[in-house]
Design a protein around this nucleic acid. Structure first.
Lengths: 120, 120
DNA sequence: GTCATTGTCAACCAATCGGTTGAGGACTGG
DNA sequence: CCAGTCCTCAACCGATTGGTTGACAATGAC
């Protein structure tokens, strides 16, 4: 996968993982505590946490087992920024089309650079 | 997949699809125009657009073929709200832990409702 | 030191995904 | 009407995903 934004979005595309994140806003928790309410195996939750961790949404105090998991705010910012940028542009185009034409022409359409690097 | 938030996040987990969205902020476009810059087949892009459409990020004027695709802002809001909610809580916990304890206790931890419905 | 608890690793499985090719449907332009 | 263009549908393929079970490493309690 490799790029941070893809990993972050993919991590939150799963309802169980979103639920884990939601519950972690209530405070750090161990894997066992986190796994308890679900019907799937502890191993499955462990995998989910690994995905969230790899995406940078969550971190662990690596002190042996029983290690608490806690939320990281940083990557949320990344996503918000991406979404907000395009959302605002989409709304702008919709609501006052001509008013934003100038802005548009600056960075879009002219000299398109293929999809390898993110249009950050 | 079924739930809107999962579909939206999953749709944006792919770099090509994010790039399509980014380009559509520059204005509506046909499938052919959208597909041109990439090296993959037109059919592949058509599939990507179907995913974006199904997620509600994009809509099409169904008038036959050569139909333009355009961005929908609404679902972006959904995602932003979800992310912002937890991001803010994560930051709050991190920066001024005790100040938010009251807020936390209101809706978390007491009476956990298993993961079927989203913790909206 | 012993032993139960906690969590991860590994192998496997069915389902989904992103891509391909091939065929065909539906407009558009003459 | 006919030809060509634009797009989608269908079938297939390899890789990834979310889940399982089983084994085992490491910590904590006594």
């Amino acid at each position: 996968m490799s790029d941070p934004l893809s990993e972050a979005f993919a991590a939150l595309a799963d309802p169980t993982r979103r639920d884990l994140v939601a519950r972690l806003t209530g405070g750090d928790a161990t894997v066992g505590q986190l796994a308890a309410p679900y019907q799937v195996s502890v191993q499955a939750i462990s995998k989910h946490l690994k995905v969230l961790e790899h995406a940078g949404l969550v971190s662990r105090d690596t002190k042996g087992h029983r290690s608490p998991v806690h939320l990281e705010a940083e990557v949320f910012d990344l996503m918000t920024k991406w979404i907000e940028r395009y959302r605002r542009r989409a709304e702008a185009r919709y609501q006052r089309l001509d008013a934003v034409l100038a802005e548009m022409n600056d960075d879009e359409e002219a000299g398109y650079r293929p999809p390898r690097e993110e249009r950050t």
